[in-house]
């Protein structure tokens, strides 16, 4: 019996330690935002009084509202387009299967894990030839059709009841009406989970915006957080403020929609 509880105690200890390590950097971020740059560099682990100075400094470096608007705009537009295009395709690949669409889908799956690094150069040349460098369209367009999200919707569509479709057709609904008025409302939890993953990916995207966006007016949050690290005297306190702002939306989404969040991550693997 003592052996059991010893093991149990070690389990609690280990889990507590790992939980602490997992959560600690978030505390560090909040504490850091209240300290001066020098104190952050010295690892000061108590709240300071520099929070408002740090916020003021951050807002003086960048047009923060504009950056947030840019980031949110790109993330919302990108997410909406991805969900629309990919859910239409995922639905159609499942419901309107033909020999050819099955072959096409198999080809898509082959390309599921093509690394972005291999697309980066041609995409950059294409986007600059199209005159889309430094535009939001240039950031959004290449990411709209995601094979993973198409696959995710196709898998989910397998659970969409045939009877609903049949009933809707007997009622005289056209195919697009069935999709809009029957499929979309019925599949809202699938849409919710997909929204979370796609929105997060867009909000947190770094490499592609780094390539496409080049003027100060068009920056997104990841780019300014990254740009603050360079220079002779990086303002650590202000960096912490920026990091909080960059992390906040995804943390909020996570705590509000924890279950859907995890569902979205597990995605098609179920």
């Amino acid at each position: 019996m003592t052996r059991m509880s010893l093991g149990r105690g070690l389990t609690y200890l280990a889990l507590s330690l790992v939980s602490f390590i997992s959560v600690f950097p978030f505390f560090w971020m909040i504490i850091g935002a209240t300290n001066t740059s020098a104190d952050v560099n010295l690892g000061k682990m108590s709240f300071g009084t520099a929070l408002f100075d740090n916020i003021a400094h951050f807002f003086s470096l960048f047009d923060v509202p504009r950056v947030l608007l840019n980031t949110a705009g790109i993330a919302v537009a990108g997410t909406a387009l991805t969900l629309l295009v990919c859910s239409l395709a995922g639905y159609a690949f499942e419901v309107f299967r033909t020999r050819y669409s099955e072959r096409l889908f198999a080809l898509f799956l082959l390309m599921l894990s093509i690394p972005f690094s291999a697309l980066m150069i041609p995409l950059f040349i294409m986007i600059s030839r199209a005159g889309l460098i430094n535009t939001f369209a240039g950031v959004i367009l290449p990411g709209i059709a995601s094979i993973f999200i198409i696959f995710y919707f196709r898998q989910a569509t397998k659970a969409f009841p045939h009877e609903l479709r049949d009933a809707a057709r007997i009622d005289g609904l056209k195919e697009w009406q069935i999709f809009l008025y029957v499929y979309m409302p019925v599949m809202r939890s699938t849409y919710a989970a997909a929204t979370i993953i796609v929105f997060m990916a867009n909000w947190n995207n770094y490499l592609w915006p780094l390539i496409v966006l080049q003027s100060n007016d068009n920056m997104v949050i990841t780019l300014i957080v990254s740009s603050m690290r360079s220079g002779y005297n990086p303002q650590q306190g202000a960096i912490m403020v920026a990091t909080i702002i960059a992390t906040l939306p995804t943390v909020i989404i996570f705590f509000l929609l924890q279950r859907r969040f995890v569902e979205g991550m597990l995605g098609a693997v179920k």
Partner: peptide, 10 residues
């Protein structure tokens, strides 16, 4: 939940 750039800064 942390973005890659944000946690790198931390």
């Amino acid at each position: 939940v942390a973005s890659l750039v944000a946690y790198s800064a931390l």
